[in-house]
């Protein structure tokens, strides 16, 4: 596999994911950036904190293998 191809693949995916675009590759899966709003959270010790917002990259794929082996 070509190094130039791998480099270009990484760069293109990074560019579009930073722009919050989703990328769907048939037969493989989809990359999507999910935004989580800030929210309050109570810890078990009673302390209440404000969780910061964040953008998370999530990957969803239909490819599945059996764990029989």
């Amino acid at each position: 596999m070509d190094t130039i191809f791998i480099k270009a693949f990484k760069e293109i995916l990074r560019e579009h994911l930073v722009e919050k675009n989703s990328i769907e590759i048939d037969g493989f899966g989809a990359f999507e950036v999910i935004h989580y709003e800030q929210h309050q959270k109570r810890y078990s010790n009673g302390k209440v904190v404000m969780m910061p917002p964040k953008d998370v990259l999530e990957f969803k794929s239909n490819i599945k293998v059996s764990n029989d082996n």
Partner: peptide, 24 residues
């Protein structure tokens, strides 16, 4: 048995750059 992807720290930081370093 599901295919998963874990982004590298660099990529995660870049995607969530705006909120990077924020703590509760």
């Amino acid at each position: 048995g599901e295919l998963k992807f874990e982004p590298s720290e660099e990529l995660s930081t870049e995607i969530s750059f705006k909120y990077a370093g924020m703590k509760p």
